[in-house]
Design a binder for these strands. Structure first.
Length: 820
RNA sequence: GCGGAUGUGGCGGAAUUGGUAGACGCGCACGGUUCAGGUCCGUGUGGAGGCAACUCUGUGGAGGUUCGAGUCCUCUCAUCCGCACCA
């Protein structure tokens, strides 16, 4: 080995500087209408939330994305690979409350640190399109989109029971409540009745569901979205209270069990409770129960296996199929936010209703015959299928599945119900009583009501304030100079909306802005979007499987419907990367197992850090970090560079041994073939890197036998193939070897002739067990293979003179000899 | 409870269509070169037996299909994730 030493701290900044100076990764938008011979490819990683400094997960997602971007570029694509910051949000504001440092300052400091480190990592970003969602020239268009949605009736204000986080002093979207607690701070969420802004994502429920079939996404993410949307088919059936003359529709997926309904239950939040209980003598008991239930909080209330509680209202309603009067209860196992907040209870065929009926000694009537039971109450509640019983003469005997349609048809003809579809998905609550977010661009005018700020007066700039502490209303309310304004319609005194938007609004359209980031006339030019959208490859964490990805899809569809873009799905292909753990646990300060990307990059260089992260396992799986493992990858890159430098330094050309040369050239072609397939088809960066390691090891092994040309070809190929994972060292090695710029070279293509060889090792099995291996010519026919296997010494030994009963020949692989 | 995933050496992980289990890397052992080494190079490394050629055994567990199963089927155990009183 030569004494040349691999020095990433010298190599990496040198190439980064050149790429920066030449703006190598900047890609211009095409002039509309001008044909291009290059295909476009939009490669995008989820934008980071800038807080403190990047962590190891950032290094992973951008290493994966950069590998894809480089691979696409060298395969001739025009690649859009931008970067930005999801810069509004609670952490910066909470930091401000604690320290007094304005959110803008801490955010800008974090962004500066992210920029520094991203550059130090050598990620091939088109920095000309950089954006931060907290900048007025970005959120101006967030506000414009809000106006568009408002105009289209997709944004509305409504009084509603909403999730309130007592700690953050703000409302939360349904999606931000985990097990009854605030997603951010973990405080138990309370229900409050408040007037809030909503976006009508439920209008898109069906399309959000159907279009999942059209995208190339991981199945688990699609499933999560399907579950979240929660479409169920059933019927709406109207029960009536004849005494009051009121109607109570219920949603049921089991109209076939209607004849088994023996009571009726309303949710504690149901608006008609007071009215129903009035005059029955049960008012007080109902009132007490409702108060208690509402105070209990959703966490306790939602606990499974809880004893059923409830109170009778002292009223009955009429079952539309048989005219029966059934008693009405209020019980907290019925949820106001699902269906109509009222249910028909069929204790014989529903576990929850059964438990309630048992607790309150209510009648239980079987209406579906079970396979096992013979009409008695054994095996109840029964959730299976069977013929109907006790269901008026006309339905008895009908298999219950068929009865669903028949009963719904009958209800429809009688005007007492209809088939119906229900969703779990709720409208998206977007207003937040917090400071550090995008102001909702509306004004309240005593004369004109809620008035949107006209597009030409946007942005409504977030004012600088002193006190960020939450007080149950937005801190903005105290900024009286800002709040008091003129009505855009009548010019009279008016007040600004002081709520800000959920930060998920900001990140629901940033990928559109990248395409036309410098446009200050419009959010984007639709013609430019046509070039780039949809994103060809989106990469990010699975933790965004529901929230961000659902909201972004909704925005895309709504904006497409409004004529602002063509694509109705934002992300054609999605890749979700796994977490990096250490000692089997998620990295966290409390565990004391955090690996800082900065420390690793400082010590080993960016190439080692990036390649190691991709090497330790399949990028979509969780993988465990090991400090010792990094050394191995560093050794490999070091060896690749030193072998290249050594060869470049070598003055004279050596012919070398012919067989060694051929072996090396074959190995290089094998690697080209394997790495290409691994990256392109499987995202299997770990095995791709392993293949380059093998090739490099082969050069090292044949160092003294192989000639200069063969070694040059092998090392060139190794650098070329490893470039997407470790761009600096490979670029440097490639230049030493060839004088060329690696990133400008087309992706290598394997020579098919070199993928074949004259002979191979034939596996010889006896009764399926490996007994010998023999070298056979590649063109040997089945008969020859059989003979070769039979002749193998250890096969002979195991046959021990017995006659083969059967011989399986798999050309190119093996021969299996079966004896009795 | 429903849905999804994972389970392979001391460790991280390979095995693409059912066809040589353990690629590649770490670690470890031995040897060499340096000997200022946190250097570099070589050999070996699933377990058991054997000087060796080899033999037996082995992919969470139990069955099955097959000439042949880590891979397919049935049951089962463990861990992780998502949803959950959703009518």
């Amino acid at each position: 080995m030569s004494d040349r030493k691999y020095d990433p701290q010298e190599i990496e900044p040198r190439w980064q500087q050149l790429w920066e100076d030449e703006a190598t990764w900047v890609v211009a938008n095409q002039v509309p209408g001008e044909p291009s011979d290059q295909q476009n490819s939009y490669v995008l990683e989820m934008l980071p939330y800038p807080s403190g400094e990047p962590h190891i997960g950032h290094l992973k997602v951008y290493s994966v994305g950069d590998a894809v971007a480089h691979f696409q570029r060298r395969n001739g694509k025009r690649v859009l690979h931008p970067m930005g910051y999801d810069a509004f949000g609670l952490p910066a504001e909470n930091h401000a409350i604690k320290t007094g440092q304005p959110p803008r300052l801490s955010t800008e400091a974090a962004i500066a640190e992210f920029q520094r480190q991203f550059r130090r990592w050598g990620i091939s970003i088109d920095w000309s399109r950089e954006l931060a969602t907290c900048e007025p020239d970005y959120y101006r268009w967030t506000q414009w989109i809000f106006n568009q949605l408002l105009k289209a009736g997709l944004a509305y204000r409504q009084q509603a029971h909403v999730n309130w986080c007592p700690n953050d002093q703000t409302v939360l979207a349904n999606e931000q409540v985990i097990d009854g607690c605030c997603e951010r701070c973990g405080a138990e969420v309370e229900l409050r009745e408040l007037e809030q802004w909503f976006l009508k994502i439920t209008d898109y429920a069906d399309r959000l569901l159907e279009d999942l079939d059209s995208v190339d996404w991981p199945e688990n993410v699609k499933t999560m979205q399907r579950n979240w949307i929660g479409r169920s088919e059933g019927a709406e059936v109207v029960f009536t209270c004849d005494e009051l003359g009121s109607e109570y529709p219920v949603f049921t997926t089991r109209p076939d069990t209607l004849f088994g309904a023996t009571f009726f239950v309303l949710a504690p939040e149901h608006p008609d409770l007071q009215r129903l209980a009035a005059g029955t003598g049960n008012e007080q008991a109902v009132d007490d129960y409702v108060k208690e239930a509402l105070a209990r909080g959703s966490e306790l209330r939602g606990a499974a296996e809880r004893e059923k509680t409830g109170v009778a209202l002292g009223r009955t309603v009429t079952n539309p199929v048989n005219g029966e009067q059934i008693p009405v209860f209020v019980a907290d196992y019925v949820l106001m936010e699902y269906g109509t907040g009222a249910i028909m209870a069929v204790p014989a065929h529903d576990e929850r209703d059964y438990a309630f009926a048992k607790a309150f000694e209510l009648p239980i009537r079987r209406v579906i015959e079970g396979n096992d039971a013979d009409g008695d109450d054994e095996g109840l509640p029964y959730g299976g299928d069977g013929p109907l019983v006790n269901s008026a003469p006309q339905f008895d005997g009908t298999p219950n599945r068929e009865a669903v349609g028949a009963i719904v048809a009958w209800l429809e003809s009688e005007g007492k119900g209809r088939s119906s579809v229900n969703y779990r998905l709720r409208d998206w609550l977007i207003s937040r009583q917090r400071y550090w977010g995008c102001p909702i661009p509306v004004v309240r005018c005593p004369q004109c009501g809620i008035v949107p700020v006209p597009d030409d007066q946007l942005p409504v700039v977030l004012p600088v304030i002193e006190d960020y502490a939450p007080k149950g209303q937005s801190p903005l309310a105290a900024a009286s100079e800002w709040v008091n304004t003129q009505c855009p319609t009548c010019g009279g005194p008016a007040q600004r909306e002081t709520d800000t938007m959920d930060t998920f609004v900001d990140s629901s359209w940033y990928f559109l802005r990248y395409c036309d980031a410098a446009n200050d006339e419009a959010a984007w030019d639709p013609a430019v979007l046509r070039e780039w959208m949809p994103v060809n490859q989106y990469i990010g964490g699975v933790e965004h499987a529901i929230l961000h990805l659902l909201y972004a899809r909704f925005f895309c569809k709504a904006l497409a419907d409004l004529g602002h873009l063509d694509a109705s799905e934002p992300f054609a292909r999605l890749f979700t990367q796994g977490m990096i753990t250490r000692d089997g646990a998620k990295m966290s300060k409390s565990h004391g197992n955090v690996v800082s990307p900065k420390a690793i990059v400082d010590r080993y260089g960016a190439d080692t850090a990036r390649a190691y992260i991709l090497f330790i396992g399949a990028p979509d799986q969780d993988v465990d970090w090991s400090d010792e493992g990094v050394e191995g990858v560093h050794r490999f890159l070091s060896r690749l560079w030193r072998l290249s430098a050594e060869l470049a330094d070598q003055g004279e050309t050596v012919d070398g041994d012919k067989a060694a040369n051929l072996m090396l050239i074959r190995k290089a072609n094998w690697a080209i073939d394997k790495v290409t397939a691994d990256i392109d088809r499987r995202f299997a960066f770990n095995t791709a890197i392993a293949a380059v390691m093998e090739l490099t090891n082969e050069v090292s092994r044949l160092r003294d036998e192989a000639g200069s040309e063969a070694k040059r070809f092998a090392l060139e190929s190794a650098s070329s193939l490893c470039f997407p994972f470790a761009p600096h060292v490979t670029t440097d090695a490639y230049q030493l070897l060839t004088g060329e710029r690696l990133w400008e070279q087309p992706w290598p293509v394997a020579d098919p002739a070199m993928l074949e060889s004259d002979s191979y090792e034939l596996v010889c099995q006896v009764n399926g067990k490996l007994r010998d291996r023999v070298e056979v010519p590649s063109d040997a026919d089945r008969e020859q293979l059989e003979q070769a296997a039979l002749a193998a010494p250890n096969v002979q030994a195991h046959l021990a003179g017995r006659e083969p009963k059967k011989v399986i020949v798999v050309p190119g692989k093996l021969v299996n000899i079966v004896v009795g």
